[in-house]
Design a protein around this nucleic acid. Structure first.
Lengths: 210, 210
DNA sequence: AAAAAATCCCCCGTATTGGGGTATACCGAT
DNA sequence: ATCGGTATACCCCAATACGGGGGATTTTTT
């Protein structure tokens, strides 16, 4: 490979070992350069204005401002930057939130190191790199209807209902008041135009809202 | 499309509106022709000898001889005819009985009309068209635990419960008394060692009884 | 014939449900 | 700065569903 302008990277990751490891790994690769690395989003937001990297590796489990919340903030100051999420937990909600908020890729930290480089290359080329298990979650969620009239909270509650849970159980489990659950259910019924749990479940399943 | 020999169809369905609707729909489609339609199996068995259709659309909920019982009789006189079942209830037992007795496809009446035509085409081509929800039932049953402590009836009822149905709804739908449903549920709870719908569903799902 | 499964019946007390309002606090978009 | 949407919480009510306690009968399987 010839020596051209390197792909610039910034790492935001609180674990020092991982941070240094990635920095070393990427800098050791031709045509890749780590401009800076940060242990938290607050510092990163300040420094990023000068760094202006092409790609950001962003840990999802961060102290203070969480990785997911950081995405819109970063996109706000650097709209053209590609963001690759790093995570240990492949939680569906996180994956989905990150991708809809503008993350380009999603890797688990257990992915081997060559994959990280490949992923950076891939996002720069307009791709969407992600681990197999992440991809599976995404595919599954694509089967879910994107334009559900239900809010996140309502969907959560309807899912509990579909599991046979009573209002009070749902309330306990979600740490909210029974009355709040009732309110949500009322709204669910109105939105789905139904008058019972049974019909709500049926309607939601038919339309892949749940 | 050129005009070739049409695919011939016979409809056996007691609801006149549906019968006429399907007849009209199919006849309006190029290369498809409804030879005859019957409101019951008895009449159909007489007429079919002359009709000799390639495909039969057979309602599962029929007065007199039920659709499922009709399958072997039809297959006896017209062994090469493809049979597509039509149903409003996607009851697991029916699906299985029908498929093992020789039905080629299985559609719910709520499927949109183009699907019916597609399905006819598909069986003629040797396929096995079925609605998504039907297919799900088939696939699911392949994964089911064979050594469930629950009887067939109990499993059926527990599945209804898992769909959020109340006892009375279950009773109505299964054409049995509310008290019978209660008895079954009592037995289910005892067998699964639980004391609520929620726990019963959870336990049953964990062990793939449903 | 015996066992298992499916059906139906009565009683009881408590919990849940669906629906009617109303209200607050928060947040993002205009 | 305001507005709509979201999430939260509270009150009241009648109707229903629920879980558990006794049975009993018929049909199907073994």
């Amino acid at each position: 490979m010839e020596n051209k302008t390197p792909i610039t990277v910034v790492i935001i990751e609180d674990d020092e070992t991982i941070r240094n490891g990635f920095t070393y790994l990427i800098n050791a690769t031709e045509n890749y350069k780590v401009l800076n690395s940060y242990s938290n989003v607050e510092d990163a937001l300040v420094g990023l204005v000068n760094d202006k990297p092409q790609v950001i590796l962003l840990d999802i489990e961060l102290p203070g401002i969480k990785g997911i919340e950081a995405i819109p903030k970063i996109k706000h100051i650097l709209p053209k930057t590609y963001i690759i999420m790093l995570t240990v937990y492949d939680n569906e909600d996180n994956v989905f939130n990150a991708l809809t908020k503008g993350a380009s890729g999603y890797l688990t930290k257990s992915d081997n190191t060559e994959k990280i480089i490949d992923a950076i290359q891939e996002v720069v080329n307009g791709g969407a790199p992600m681990s197999m298990n992440i991809a599976k979650i995404v595919i599954k969620s694509f089967h879910k209807n994107q334009n559900s009239p239900l809010t996140k909270r309502e969907t959560e509650i309807l899912e509990q209902i579909a599991n046979g849970k009573s209002r009070s159980k749902i309330a306990k489990q979600m740490f909210i008041d029974l009355e709040t659950v009732k309110s949500h259910i009322k709204n669910i019924y109105i939105k789905l135009n139904v008058h019972s749990r049974e019909d709500a479940i049926k309607e939601a399943k038919n339309n892949k809202y749940i």
